[in-house]
Design a protein around this nucleic acid. Sequence first.
DNA 1: ATTGCATGTGTACGCTCGTACACATGACCA
DNA 2: TGGTCATGTGTACGAGCGTACACATGCAAT
Lengths: 187, 187
Amino acid sequence: MSDLTTTPRRPRRHDPGRRDRLIDAALTVIAERGVAGTTHREIARVADVPLGSMTYHFASLDEVLAEAFTRHAESVARVFDERLGAAQDRDAAVEAVITLVSDDLLGSRHDLILTVELYVAAARKPALKAVTQAWMRRSRQALERHFDVTTARELDALIEGLVLHSALSTEPMTPEQIRHAVDRYLR
Amino acid sequence: MSDLTTTPRRPRRHDPGRRDRLIDAALTVIAERGVAGTTHREIARVADVPLGSMTYHFASLDEVLAEAFTRHAESVARVFDERLGAAQDRDAAVEAVITLVSDDLLGSRHDLILTVELYVAAARKPALKAVTQAWMRRSRQALERHFDVTTARELDALIEGLVLHSALSTEPMTPEQIRHAVDRYLR
DNA sequence: ATTGCATGTGTACGCTCGTACACATGACCA
DNA sequence: TGGTCATGTGTACGAGCGTACACATGCAAT
């Protein structure tokens, strides 16, 4: 018992990669409390670092948000690329889309919420609008490896709708229902 | 010049329907600044009433949000009902859906933003989740007047996707593109 | 071994916010 | 016409926020 009267002053030091951990912590906070509830103090608490560390690593809270959402978009886009890149023909691509929606997109409530949070945040902050648009362009290009331009765009919209609709409903669509919707549209 | 030294003390009185005006002002503020930027003070400024008037008419800020979003959902749902109710056969219903998306939903950027804002807010506040779910149920029932249950649900998702996709893109889909997507799915 | 400097830490400042609450006033009813 | 009270108004308070900044510390280069 030595820290009851004086401030403890943490001994912690030498934490390489802390900046990365802070970005991950930011994503956790955004998913749990929303962008509105995301503060320097809350991120620091989750990452278990002092408040001062935030202002050292980031110039502003907007910078944190931009880096966090960029990481999220990159992560989802990579899965998109991989699934569609592995498909050899159109039928396989259709299966890839079904798996993508059922497993990858609807499988993680965390990612789902992050996506919607990004959408509204992008409506106000230009830096985030750029992130979403780059993401959209990339996923549409991935679809164009197997489908014509018009189909790719429409399919992209359908995917968006299926995901969002499921996310907000009390009874999310089952994999069978997803398959039915995609099949009906593509075959 | 008599109000430079002392507080002006507004003479205003007798403003029936002020509560309604405040709810409308809240919708304006939400659309312009987002739920996060919606405060008692900002709503009061837009409606040109003193701050104290907010706490008189509403028990909390959440109550304001709930009433505002309920009004928004009701307003959109009514248009939905009207368009589909007027359709006499399936072909007319398809046209109604196309008009609905192209004109009503995509026509108003104001309403579009309100809808997305409602979606994320509903993820945190149970009262708002109830609002979105009642809304979804109602629009699906409107579609079921002309389409079978499965088609109605899938069509609802497609509409959601088309709207959201257009809302976030730099180049929103044209009415022709909307028509093409809906036609492909329904005919 | 010394020291410079990137990294890490604690705290203070000014601001805006939701909410509470005391006071004003005029429409309506007896 | 006089009084009541729902409605309208101004202001204060405590909390949480972003950010700035002075101080600590140990790795690396000399």
